[in-house]
Design a binder for these strands. Structure first.
Length: 618
RNA sequence: GCGCUCGUAGCUCAGUUGGAUAGAGCAUCGCUUUCCUAAAGCGAAGGUCGCAGGUUCGAAUCCUGCCGGGCGCGCCA
């Protein structure tokens, strides 16, 4: 019983935390101040030859409390008690404290990590998380723009779920409003059969509707800009007469929809079904956990929009301006429009309704918007408006944090936003199929090698693996960069089995699987950490929990990617220099097999949070 | 015009939120190597961290001003 308690306490400690606490105590006693106010600035040491961790706090604290930093560091070193974790640290340079963890501790910690949850601590916060992702528009095919929002959002969701949070993936469909009404009007007036509707027909109608809308807008703007006299205005109106006619017809349709016209609503639903059927197929191929259950689009909020505006108006935050209702902010000129002068609502209105739903009804204390960086201003307005009206809290009064995760564009090799040769948007589907094809080509090529484990596989098996590699390649390439940056879509680099790529990590993982198949699992074998490569690998593994929580904290999946790549590298060095299968020393052999298997499970788990599958052979 | 954002090796990118001599992978050039292993390995070269100031014991990182690229700016989403 006693032992059980000790084990529990030990497990809840991670190395870095333990070092930090010990040093806080040491600094506190030497400087005679409250240890809790001290930050010893613990970092992983850059050079493993020198140390495992370093404490950089002596410099700053020495300065602050009038001590020579080197002398302070030496005093700290002489009094600090790391218990069994580490031996006496060393002082270097201007006051760095270098700490080396002893092998017994590393061994013990790795053994503790080697359990079902792989040392990942659950999040203490138990509120839900809402993630706005994908953002598909009805009547519109998914294109590259949706790729990033979907896979980044899904990855963040998976990371949160991994630490025990409930996540609502919110697919905020563009399924309501004038654009959809225009498409519907066009299809109805051309007497298209909605039951045999194809997505291509819808797309064409959507594009056409957008052109018409743009024409009207351009005409109005041109007229205003030129300060045109009445005759000039009439001229433009004549030019856009048909456009305006279409607009008027669409508005009629929209009105009928909003009134709840049953027949029209049924037809509207057909547009959605037609669109979503194709969308789900793409999302499925992309291996993301987004399906019909995640749909909560603009139409879901349609009856709440009036209330949103009313709330703002009655609290004095929404004021009338030129016939429209706007919300103004103290520190900037730009207002946020929440109601048009014709009484119509805007996307800002819907987003406000969605915020309130997510915080108040879903109980999310973090609402995350994975949306293109170009919408930064919109989200700044949205979040500030939310704060003004105090909708940024859950029902239990917990403050809800609204975060925009902005991401850059996918570029073609001309460094411009990715387009097809004819200049149109690249559909997600074509991109994914190209990736699958490239992945499959790689797998088939490798299966021709007689000593490859895939050499006896049938076509269907090879195709499955090819899909896993191709999709993994583009997802990893996307997630492994700092999100804010644009990146050039280069399939050759993405599917390469060398370098910081998805396939490289998958391959390394498959090879460990192969090793385990030959050597057998060694659950519970005694670990022996002695060789430098074993030590480096073990220390790397022990960072898993911290890296994951940092990736979540900063909403940066590329941290996890970088670390997985480093882990894979550490394993390669280990596998290169530490024999396993041919060892006669059964103890070391079992230990190494266990270390390998733990590495494999961590890689599989890590890749899973990126939405990437880990084939056992490839 | 105003605002946001990015700028790191030839190329593609990291850089642990202010720490030691700025790191990887491709590509280049050398040298080893036929092995328990489904991957060859090791090394070299390559940098004014866009530029100039400032803060600091200490700056790629924070502040200011420039330069260059991208993006956004009232009734579209």
């Amino acid at each position: 019983m006693v032992q059980f308690v000790i084990v529990r306490v030990y497990m809840s400690l991670n190395i870095q935390q333990h070092i930090c606490d010990s040093l806080k105590t040491a600094f506190g006693s030497v400087l005679n101040i409250d240890p809790n106010e001290i930050d010893p600035v613990i970092r992983r040491a850059q050079n493993p030859e020198i140390a495992d961790f370093q404490a950089n706090g002596a410099m700053g604290l020495g300065k602050k409390y009038g001590h020579n930093p080197i002398e302070l560091a030496e005093k700290i070193v002489s009094v600090v008690d790391f218990g069994t974790f580490a031996d006496k640290p060393e002082v270097a340079g201007p006051g760095f404290i270098n700490i080396r963890i002893n092998n017994e501790t590393i061994t013990k910690l790795v053994e503790e990590m080697d359990c079902e949850n792989l040392g990942v601590e659950p999040d203490k916060d138990t509120h839900a998380i809402a993630i706005d992702l994908c953002g598909v528009n009805v009547a519109k095919q998914l294109h590259v723009g949706h790729l990033r929002s979907t896979i980044i959002g899904d990855s963040i969701a998976r990371m949160y779920e991994r630490v025990g949070r409930t996540v609502y993936r919110e697919n905020h469909l563009g399924d309501w409003g004038l654009p959809i009404a225009m498409v519907l009007e066009q299809l109805l007036s051309s007497e298209t059969n909605l039951d045999t509707l194809e997505l291509d027909d819808l797309n064409a109608a959507y594009k056409n509707a957008q052109l018409v809308a743009k024409d009207e807008l351009r005409g109005e703007k041109a007229a205003k800009k030129l300060q045109s006299g009445p005759h000039r205005f009439i001229e433009i109106e004549e030019q856009n007469a048909s456009a305006l006619g279409a607009q008027a017809a669409a508005k009629t349709v929209l009105n009928a929809l909003q009134r709840g016209d049953k027949k029209l609503l049924a037809n509207w639903q057909k547009l959605i079904d037609c669109t979503m059927e194709a969308v789900y197929a793409s999302l499925d191929l992309l291996n993301v956990k987004v399906g019909p259950e995640n749909n909560r689009g603009e139409s879901f909020y349609r009856d709440r929009l009036g209330g949103v505006v009313e709330s703002f108006v009655s609290s004095g935050l929404g004021i009338e301006d030129d016939g429209a209702i706007v919300v103004r902010f103290k520190n900037r000129e730009r207002p946020m429009l929440i109601q048009k002068s014709d009484g119509g609502f805007l996307y800002a209105t819907t987003d406000l309704a969605a915020v309130r739903f997510r915080t108040n009804e879903l109980g999310a204390d973090r609402v995350i918007y994975v949306v293109d960086a170009r919408q930064r201003d919109h989200f700044k307005d949205l979040f500030d408006a939310t704060a003004l009206i105090s909708w940024n809290q859950t029902p239990d009064g917990t403050g809800a944090e609204l975060v925009h995760v902005p991401f850059g564009s996918v570029l073609g090799d001309d460094n411009k936003p990715l387009k097809t040769r004819s200049g149109s948007n690249v559909t997600l589907d074509s991109l994914l199929h190209e990736a699958v094809e490239r992945g499959t080509t790689e797998v088939i090529k490798r299966s021709k090698e007689p000593n490859s484990p895939t050499s006896k596989m049938c076509d269907a098996e090879l195709k499955t693996i090819g899909r896993q590699i191709g999709i993994g390649a583009i997802k990893y390439a996307d997630l492994s960069n700092d999100l804010i940056r644009d990146y050039v879509f280069d399939m050759n680099r993405m599917v390469a089995f060398e370098g910081n790529t998805g396939p490289y990590i998958q391959y390394a993982c498959a090879r460990i699987s192969s090793l385990i198949r030959k050597g057998g699992e060694r659950v519970g074998a005694k670990l022996v950490i002695e060789e430098p490569q074993e030590r480096v690998l073990a220390l790397k593994l022990l960072q898993y929990n911290n890296v994951l929580h940092d990736s979540i904290k900063y909403l940066e999946p590329h941290r996890l990617c970088t670390w997985l790549y480093e882990l894979t590298d550490a394993f390669s060095a280990f596998y290169q220099l530490c024999p396993v299968l041919k060892l006669d020393d059964e103890l070391t052999k079992q230990s190494r097999l266990r270390l390998s298997d733990l590495t494999r499970r961590v890689i599989v788990d890590g890749l899973d949070m990126l939405g990437i599958e880990s084939p056992e052979q490839m």
